[in-house]
Design a binder for these strands. Structure first.
Lengths: 199, 199
DNA sequence: AAAAAGATTGTGAATGTTCACTAACTAAAA
DNA sequence: TTTTAGTTAGTGAACATTCACAATCTTTTT
């Protein structure tokens, strides 16, 4: 379930898999390419993983654990909900900025189709993010920082949708623009729009 | 470029391709499955299309033309921007409700990886939609129906992001809920949130 | 109107390529 | 000496695509 049980070589392999994902997409992620990237013969990969599926799942579990941990650290109840929301997305943009391959992994349905286990792993990542996001938005609504005009889930849907679309645009632009700067700008606009009206 | 040059059989084939896409995803769309769906031998497919790629491209061009036409009809300058925005999304939800396979085609990066031509075709669909959306949002901002607190592009980004995420959720739920009802609800919440504050 | 010629649209078998994965072997480390 | 981590050389299955051929429909010629 967690990362603890992963060897150094296994970690190298899932990183190589990530590198391939970001450069060649899901269809480029083959055992052959993975072995080439590692400087191995293909069969050597199977010394470390039972199947291609377990490689992808290991990668996604690593991401989920990592994200969960980072988001937990970044949120503080000394901050206002607004600051926490900013912190979450700042963290996300910094992370994906340094690990663009995970964008392909998470926001790719090519992977999701591959197997039910992979599907489940991707959904868990989404849920991990929502787990952290939800209470902050709710708190922000209660304290009057965010609008109460629509339900919490809907506010989250709109925020997440804007985030995902931004990631999509970054990906089809081949990661060519600065997602961190663009992300800051997006967040400022989202902040503006979810502000309650002062009547 | 346009649909005019498509034969009846070609139309049947792209419809069969769509059916397969919605039931089995991008990875299920093989010539073998396509031939089975048509009641053909595999080779017969090649009487009507040069390659698998041209089938997908034909399908996307059909969708782009169709969407462009429908959106053009649905928008009227007798309506308020709010009504037009509603009309656009109403139309989209009705259409995708009756043609769920196009959701897979358009919102799938599995397809986008396949070839530059397919990639370009999908981007054209997105641009067609934005072409209709942009002036309405802009008009709404000028007339004070939508908030001026953030730029038009950003408002569009947020609206499109929410729409796309809704489609994604519908797809991973295997089209099991009523996207039309859910879409109406989403639109009412978006309307609420893009309203300008009355100070 | 009948026959010949040609085009259209299908079939079945086969092509070469790529894929994930496996078996048997080998060298070095523990 | 046994375990570990790599190699070479395969496997069968799936894939898009092609080819020689046949039946049917359409057009042209007689």
């Amino acid at each position: 379930m967690s990362i603890s049980s992963i060897s150094d070589r296994q970690f190298e392999i899932i990183q190589a898999a990530g590198k391939i994902l970001s450069s060649s997409g899901v269809s480029g992620l083959t055992i052959k390419n993975l072995a080439k990237e590692m400087g191995f013969a293909e069969s050597a990969i199977y010394r470390h993983f039972d199947s291609k599926e377990t490689i992808v799942v290991a990668m996604l579990i690593y991401l989920a654990d990592n994200m969960d941990e980072r988001l937990g650290k970044v949120i503080s109840n000394r901050n206002t909900p607004k600051e926490n929301l900013d912190a979450i997305f700042n963290d996300q943009f910094v992370f994906f900025s340094g690990n663009p391959h995970f964008v392909v992994a998470v926001f790719s349905d090519g992977l999701m189709e591959a197997s039910p286990k992979i599907n489940a792993a991707i959904l868990r990542i989404m849920q991990a993010k929502m787990k952290h996001l939800m209470p902050i938005i709710m708190e922000g609504q209660h304290q009057g920082y965010f609008t109460n005009a629509i339900p919490t889930e809907e506010l989250m849907h709109i925020i997440l949708g804007a985030f995902r679309l931004q990631m999509f645009k970054w990906r089809i632009a081949n990661f060519q623009f600065d997602i961190f700067e663009r992300g800051k700008y997006l967040m400022s606009n989202i902040s503006t729009i979810i502000q309650p009206c002062k009547n």
